[in-house]
């Protein structure tokens, strides 16, 4: 059993929630870009979620989770002081940062929660970080202060203009790249893009003509997260890779997005049916 020591909603809409969980074995080795797998209780499924932070001394790991399907909705009902059945990790490879000087990190929605620790770590290492954070609307914006502290330049944009700039991340990324050229500044030596698959697909097309290496973090469907089931297969550069052990970071210009998007929707019917069956009396508590 693993205790939730902090729980905090990160936005007005309460769609994304932070959980700091006691897990000394994970806290000891966790690095930005890695993920953990949690399970709520005996009947629960194993769900991968990115590491959003860790405290090696306290022995805690932090995750930021958007309520999307049944399990994540149920996780949102777990309170500070409650326990969850399992959490294991850190899994996957850490994000590569060696030798980088100037990076643009792009986050879309809850992707900002995954991109945040990467930006933070890079910023601490002295890498120049531009952070472009995109959200649908003001009520779901997260981590305003944290993102500011973790970057040299922060652009927050919403699709409807209800907070920050109005527009999509693709446009702002292109603007930043063009500005570097126009102003004779050094170009980004890496773009890190984390968000919905479709957003990452379009961001990859923005950077491709400029030849800027672009890394995306994938979260396909997984079961064990240790390379055992092969469920998280992605096609990268024509080869089949396992996102859990070979990733989760991959070169955006090599990823087969169409296969990725189709595979991600494989259990959509089952997920929708399960989410509909969340008990309205107990509000998602299994034995409430």
């Amino acid at each position: 059993m693993y205790k939730v020591v902090t729980k905090r909603f990160l936005n007005e809409a309460k769609s994304i929630c932070l959980f700091e969980i006691e897990a000394p074995l994970i806290a000891r080795h966790a690095q930005a870009g890695q993920f953990v797998v949690f399970r709520l209780d005996e009947q629960g499924e194993r769900v991968p979620v990115s590491v959003a932070g860790y405290d090696r001394e306290k022995g805690t790991v932090t995750v930021m989770v958007q309520a999307a399907g049944k399990t994540t909705k149920m996780l949102h009902t777990v309170e500070q002081g409650d326990v969850i059945s399992d959490i294991v990790g850190p899994l996957g490879k850490a994000t590569e940062m060696e030798g980088l000087k100037k990076v643009c990190v792009v986050g879309g929605g809850v992707g900002c929660a995954i991109a945040y620790p990467i930006a933070k770590e890079m910023h601490e290492r002295g890498i120049e970080v531009t952070f472009i954070a995109g959200f649908r609307s003001a009520d779901i914006v997260i981590l305003k202060d944290e993102l500011k502290a973790a970057s040299d330049k922060l652009i927050i944009a919403t699709d409807d203009g209800s907070y920050g700039e109005k527009g999509f991340t693709t446009v702002f990324l292109k603007n930043e790249i063009e500005a570097n050229i126009a102003e004779g500044k050094p170009q980004f030596d890496r773009v890190i893009a984390i968000g919905p698959d479709i957003m990452m697909k379009f961001l990859a097309e923005v950077t491709r003509p400029y030849g800027i290496k672009t890394i995306i973090s994938l979260d396909p469907i997984m079961v064990d997260g240790t390379g055992m089931c092969g469920c998280c297969r992605v096609i990268v550069g024509g080869e089949t890779k396992f996102a859990c052990v070979d990733g989760p970071d991959f070169d955006a210009h090599e990823v087969d997005f169409d296969s990725l998007i189709k595979r991600a929707a494989f259990y959509k019917d089952e997920q929708d049916a399960a989410a509909e069956h969340i008990c309205r009396i107990t509000g998602g508590k299994r034995h409430g």
Binding site: L25, I26, R28, H29, D86, I87, V88, G89, P90, L91, T226
Partner: peptide, 10 residues
């Protein structure tokens, strides 16, 4: 000790 992946957790 469950949830301990050698090579990752320890």
């Amino acid at each position: 000790v469950n949830n301990a992946i050698i090579g990752k957790s320890i």
